[in-house]
């Protein structure tokens, strides 16, 4: 059996998406939440690159994947900066300790 990367793409995307989404729901540590977001972003990068390849436009998919990597790196940096500030003012990075959720 000869699997091309494209054949494994759906499995990989769903797997990464599942792990990231699950982590997003259960994780309490802010930095770990950012790690969970990064896992989700990997799912998106893989999905876009594979979608480009599947439709015969590899270079289009690759270009989108590149942009996603750049954009989400900025988002990760911003999130980590926020985390440091949270740590300074709350003394913890436990998101369930952040204030009260009135709602």
């Amino acid at each position: 059996m000869n699997l091309s990367p494209l054949d494994t793409a759906i499995f990989l995307v769903l797997g990464l998406f599942g792990v990231g989404f699950y982590a997003l729901l259960i994780v309490r540590h802010l930095i770990k939440l950012v790690i969970a977001l990064q896992i989700l972003v990997k799912a998106a990068v893989v999905a876009l690159a594979a979608a480009g390849a599947a439709s015969g436009k590899l270079e289009l998919g690759a270009s989108l994947a590149l942009s996603v990597i750049v954009v989400d790196t900025v988002v990760a940096v911003v999130a980590l900066a926020l985390a440091l500030q949270v740590r300074k003012h709350f003394g913890t990075l436990d998101v369930s300790e952040l204030g009260t959720l009135r709602g």
Partner: peptide, 10 residues
């Protein structure tokens, strides 16, 4: 993004 990938693939 996942939605975009689904559209792009098709």
């Amino acid at each position: 993004l996942l939605g975009i990938a689904l559209v792009l693939a098709q």
